[in-house]
Design a protein around this nucleic acid. Structure first.
Lengths: 188, 188, 188, 188
DNA sequence: GATGAATGAGGCTTCATTCAT
DNA sequence: GATGAATGAAGCCTCATTCAT
């Protein structure tokens, strides 16, 4: 975690720092390994010393700097909207903004990235579903609708950043949380 | 004279056909112009006769084979769910599945693609908002919530395909429509 | 001589006009035939209709728009400096400034250009020699020196333009004329 | 390991050697980088390892293999012709004949070449002027004429080679030196 | 004669990857 | 382990030239 060119933050870490920045900026394909080395301040050969193939840099980045957390879900019984809002603020993804960008952007590029994104999606859905079940008094509501709600919320959480980047349109997760809560809460 | 394979759609059209297929399949960056020419059954140089730079193929594809329609919105008063479902089935985008894939996938690649996607997003939101206003009896509901509903529906429509492709998780637009309708309808 | 796109100044002439401008500007190699056609306002194919190969445009330009005149030399007996100055102002080359530039610039490119330049050089030398012989009272001066004087004057006349273009250094032909005249005149 | 032909001047040097030969022979534009690599006995890619763009080969050649010397001028008082002759034999340019050819031939191609040629011209003029001032007893001669003499001599020195190559006409610098000296010497 | 689509060779350049030191 | 020279496949693009209409 000690980035920057400290005494020796470790060449490997510096390489990953550089790659993270560049992949997030211009994309994996458009980033030559030479530029990674340059930004990291290490000789070109060293990159291949630590990462035999270029794709391994991406894979390691996703493996080591991206964690889909698995903790127990917090839910406030009787407050589904608050529960979802809280989930929105604690997306079960431990990663820098740059890594998040990489995850969404390069999901096509390599299977391992895609899988990580898939796991993230599943986890968000799982949490949302669980949280809603807990938050709603009698969870006897329509199971299908609850599933749709969870999936919708996950989609919004996952793509809000891309959407904003690509179309300039902001979505407020809290408003969506409130909307969904309302849809389910009114079942009574 | 007729040594071409297609009924002679014209070389330019064949090039665009080939590019559409390949860009949708492997992505813009991963598709060499030589492969486009090969698949189109034309010599390599002809691609550059019609499209000075490689990116122009993508731009022309988006310009000519992608239309964000602007027609009036259909709405069934009293049936917001049905109205949204209908919108889901008539996304205001006239484009082949391949083109749709390209639009979502290459939005980073070039401004013109991004803009088209942005316009699509805006149009979906506009339609959803309008349809809901019409469908809901007294549209006096919370304006902010209606906005959130429209944006959420647009996000789901736009990203459902990508989500499925990347994570394998399907979202049923109809279920989301019903969910949203319920959220708004229960305001009364 | 009726350039410009008059009713039909003749496509051929317009092509040569365009080529003259472009060759003088960017050089022969750097000028694609397509740009010639474009500037001439004719279809690309027409260039090759009139000039089978690209080099033929250059050759025709030199052949038709470059004349090394052959007229009799004017000399003012007793005034070698004035005689040379007059020669400087009436270089035996009938050509536009653009053509002159082309002649000097592309002399490497093709034999026919080189030959034309060679003939020009010879003619200037011949004239200078003859003029000096006439202008000097008793031409009994050193023949070798007279030859050197003529060659020097020719070199200055031919390269003054290039020198200025390339190095920014101006040479005044009149001053050189005066210098040379002095060198020869003082033999007495 | 020693599969190279030269005593291993280093790949970079061999590339420059090859380029020097080829540029002097056929010209910069007409020399493909592939041929440079081939003649140098190195793989094509190595050329771009040392010289990112093709033009950088030319620039480096001019920068490293062309020196416009700046030393003090030698002059023989009372012998302007000998002084100029000596200058002709010691042109203030340290460069191989091939490099000299390149310098004159490609001055259009790139600014850095042009500048070098300009500096050479200035230096020759400076030297010629200074040498003549020293060589002439009372330097009270006409300053303008002295300037013209220096410029003329520089023009002849710089272009004698091109002239010969292009027109086949030789100029003897010694004869020109003698001519100029005479012009100035007779001022008395 | 006039036109512009068609052709394909070849140029410059990029870049992942290897490897000797 | 660390280094940067070496390698060569492949990509994009240019362009003179041909030719059917």
């Amino acid at each position: 975690m000690d980035r920057k060119e400290a005494p020796d933050a470790g060449a490997r870490a510096r390489i990953m720092d550089a790659a993270e920045k560049l992949f997030a900026g211009g994309g994996y394909d458009a980033t030559p390994t030479a530029r990674i080395a340059e930004l990291a301040g290490v000789p070109k050969g060293l990159v291949f010393h630590y990462f035999p193939r270029k794709i391994d840099v991406l894979i390691s980045l996703v493996d080591e700097r991206t964690v889909v957390t698995d903790e127990e879900v917090e839910a406030f019984p009787g407050d589904p909207a608050g529960t979802l809002s809280r989930l929105a603020r604690r997306i079960p993804l431990r990663a820098s903004p740059a890594m998040r960008r990489i995850l969404f952007r390069e999901a096509d590029t390599h299977r391992s990235v895609r899988e990580r994104l898939g796991r993230l999606n599943s986890e968000i859905i799982r949490r949302a579903r669980f949280a809603l079940e807990l938050a709603l008094p009698g969870s006897r509501g329509d199971a299908a609708r609850l599933e749709a709600a969870a999936a919708t919320f996950a989609a919004v959480l996952i793509y809000q950043e891309s959407l904003c980047l690509l179309t300039g349109h902001h979505i407020d997760p809290d408003a969506v949380a409130e909307l969904i809560a309302h849809a389910l809460g009114n079942l009574a």
